[in-house]
Design a protein around this nucleic acid. Structure first.
Lengths: 257, 257
DNA sequence: CGTCATGTTGAGCGTCATCAACAGGAGTGG
DNA sequence: CCACTCCTGTTGATGACGCTCAACATGACG
């Protein structure tokens, strides 16, 4: 109950990007974070089939939504980082339809459903904020469907880089210098393959192509998009689908991408 | 204002599957259906970039969410039929990120945002119902991502058939007889190709395979799944991800699929 | 120093795309 | 009634994109 309010900043900050949640509700919400746990990389926070009694909040780190097919193949369906609340649907769904797995070490808070439900009753703007987060997720999923169904491998990978670059920059987690944009990038090539529906071998070759074209540079867990506009053109990336996630305090003043 | 309440049945019925919306709110909501329009097949109800002032409700017919890439390629990201409210996100998103296009002739109702917003303020359960519909959509999108990213062509097509069969049956739009399930199927092979990220030529050959295996039969706009269990096994279909859409009055009593 | 995860390269092959042609049915207009 | 077009489905030939399998390089870590 006395869980530190400080680490919850990212959550609270992000929530307020979606709707004006009154301070006291926000405060109360943070107080509900029943426990905060650290996870190693590559650990399931919640799994397919679970019936969670808490919602989780990513306070720090990256996670991947993913499903595992019979045969063991894994498909990553979404990437999230600090501030996200990736299993809100557990409030309604009888059981979870996918895994939520850490990609890095991660700090995760848990909010009991039992606390969240009455709070939502009292605070429509909280419901709005959550609903809106769901809508953003859905828009991103749609774009991933397009990416998986309709773009060739290299463009597909480039598109993912553009998307993550944009989302990270909006949340203050990327550095822009001239034409370049750089940010922490924890995914291995195999994980990137799982997100794009390719094999690690082929991802490796596509990355060589992107490097060869002078579009990206990767070093030690860090990604640099060398020419954001050229990369976006190559990928066919148009950030409109992310618009609902754009922090309201900077809406419209985007760098072109 | 005096818009016929009768054709709105499908909407109202579906809404109440998601949450108990009080009768008077339900009634009021239906009264807000400002106009009802008929569309021909293959017509955009709303388009990429639109800033709609109304939400639409599919009263009768099928629609496809889709995005068009530069180059003209089209990816269908979702299929919906009677009862769906596919552009709720227009309440929040600055502009629509995809097209909503009829696949059949369709009857569509429109509800002004200006009427919907205050009603939502007053009725939390309405917000819940809408949010929940968004969550179902998101779960389906995730499964489509898996389908597009990780399943070979024939299995991918089979999976789509299983999903639509299940959803249609839950809404009383499919007939089960023994091992078989049959329902109206308006998609052409080319549209099926756009939904599965394949070419029409390859879809044609996969359908021959499915027919050859005795799994499906298609005749004049009608689809028959000849052995639902075998088809599900072939597709790797597990209906759990649809659970939140399952009508509450029949939860649990599913035929195995 | 050995082990393990990750990245890289090569060779060969299969799934699926491309391009082209044609059949059949529905609708249109002469 | 037939000629015409258009849409949908079907088939064949060819080739490319991406997969599989296998080997090896590199760096982190114990």
């Amino acid at each position: 109950m006395a869980a530190a309010h400080q680490p919850i900043n990212t959550f609270s900050k992000r929530l307020n990007m979606f709707a004006d949640v009154p301070d006291e509700i926000d405060h109360e919400l943070c107080g509900f974070v029943a426990k905060v746990r650290e996870f190693n990389a590559n650990h399931d926070i919640v799994s397919q089939g679970d019936k969670p009694s808490h919602c989780c909040v990513i306070l720090e780190g990256w996670i991947a939504r993913n499903k595992i097919l019979e045969g063991g193949r894994r498909q990553i369906t979404a990437l999230h980082f600090s501030g996200a609340t990736p299993d809100l649907q557990s409030l309604f769904m009888p059981s979870l339809d996918h895994n939520i797995t850490t990609l890095t070490t991660a700090r995760v808070g848990f909010i009991p459903h039992a606390s969240l439900r009455p709070l939502m009753e009292r605070c429509p703007s909280l419901v709005r904020a959550f609903w809106r987060e769901t809508l953003v997720d859905a828009a991103i999923s749609r774009e991933w469907e397009v990416n998986l169904g309709a773009r060739p491998a290299s463009n597909r990978i480039a598109h993912l880089f553009c998307e993550m670059g944009t989302r990270l920059e909006w949340f203050g987690r990327a550095n822009r210098r001239g034409k370049t944009l750089s940010f922490a990038w924890p995914l291995t090539q195999s994980q990137l393959a799982e997100a794009t529906g390719l094999t690690n071998v082929h991802v490796n070759r596509c990355l060589q192509e992107l490097r060869g074209r002078g579009l990206v540079e990767m070093a030690r867990e860090r990604m640099t998009l060398l020419d954001v506009q050229k990369l976006a053109a190559f990928a066919g990336f148009n950030p409109d689908y992310l618009a609902a996630e754009e922090p309201r305090d900077r809406a419209g003043q985007n760098q072109p991408m």
